[in-house]
């Protein structure tokens, strides 16, 4: 396996708060990753550290086998598009593209201009005057056209409508197929991107609570709905990640696939079985305040 990012025990503390707590994971070459979690979970801080824009308090961080800090062998291969990316006030869209073409060694000019057409961006307009959605489109274009071996998108589509977001997914997949590279999509909007992902890492309160192949996760949790007592009895001994009740009815969601025997049992108890989508799973795992760490050992 070709590891492009290796993180071991990474911790970032601010004065009175731990933003990232003992995080370990790795990214392999040419996969599309989802870095998921709620706002403020620590995703952005982790990405800032991977790209040497913030400094770890402790722990080990290697990108392409080296420390990324002030290291051009690493930095020239990274592109990090963040929601809060700043552009000089006097820059026009064309200036951003022009400068980006000199920053990113793999820049594809034609692709960049094709994307400009796709997103209907006014080349001569000053970035400062762009709408939120257009500003997001600028970031997306730089991220895609950079063709950086590790490209990170952090909440890249703020203000973009459904059509533009669909366009982003289309172009991303097309270009990824032709030019495979490691892509990290960080977002709290999981439903739209989940199908693009090959691997999912979920961050909650600064910790990794899930690190798993996306396909493994689909169908990994189940929900039973029925009489509260029976539903609870059925779920007993399983790792429950969500509970809802209404009158005597309850819906209990837990980790683990159900085999034929389980299904028969549920049927006998008069319980209905509902599938749990990847998004629902992540929402449940990150919603509860108590740590769901044990849920992760699949």
């Amino acid at each position: 396996m070709n590891k492009v990012v290796e993180i071991n025990g990474l911790t970032k503390k601010y004065k009175d708060q731990i933003a990232v707590n003992n995080v370990s994971f790795m990214l392999e070459a040419n996969k599309i990753y989802g870095l998921l979690g709620r706002n403020g979970a620590g995703k952005t801080t982790i990405m800032h550290m991977i790209t040497a824009q913030a400094f770890p308090t402790s722990g080990e961080l290697k990108v392409f086998g080296e420390n990324p800090y002030e290291n051009n062998r690493v930095l020239t291969q990274l592109c990090f598009i963040k929601e809060s990316q700043k552009y000089p006030d006097n820059y026009r869209v064309i200036d951003v593209l022009d400068v980006s073409s000199t920053f990113f060694p793999n820049w594809d000019r034609e692709f960049a201009f094709a994307l400009i057409e796709d997103f209907r961006l006014p080349l001569k307009r000053r970035v400062k005057k762009l709408s939120r959605g257009m500003l997001s489109a600028v970031g997306i274009i730089v991220g895609l056209a950079s063709r950086a071996p590790v490209t990170i998108f952090d909440e890249p589509y703020l203000g973009l409508d459904a059509v533009a977001r669909g366009l982003f997914y289309d172009r991303l997949l097309d270009d990824y197929a032709e030019n495979p590279r490691t892509i990290v999509l960080s977002t709290h909007l999981i439903d739209e991107v989940s199908k693009l992902l090959e691997h999912v890492i979920v961050i909650n309160s600064g910790e990794v609570i899930l690190n798993e192949d996306a396909e493994e996760l689909r169908g990994q949790a189940s929900t039973v709905v029925g009489a509260a007592a029976k539903a609870e009895a059925f779920a007993m001994g399983r790792t429950i990640i969500h509970r809802e009740s209404m009158g005597g009815l309850a819906s209990v969601t837990f980790m683990g696939r159900l085999d034929a025997e389980d299904r028969r049992q549920a049927e006998e108890l008069g319980l209905e079985i509902a599938p749990v989508s990847l998004q629902q799973l992540v929402v449940h795992l990150t919603k509860s305040n108590h740590k769901n760490k044990e849920a992760v050992s699949l």
Partner: peptide
């Protein structure tokens, strides 16, 4: 103020 967050945000080395 104008260029540092832009440049380092686009992974320019600080020294450069």
């Amino acid at each position: 103020v104008q260029t540092y967050p832009f440049a380092v945000g686009f992974t320019m080395r600080r020294k450069d």
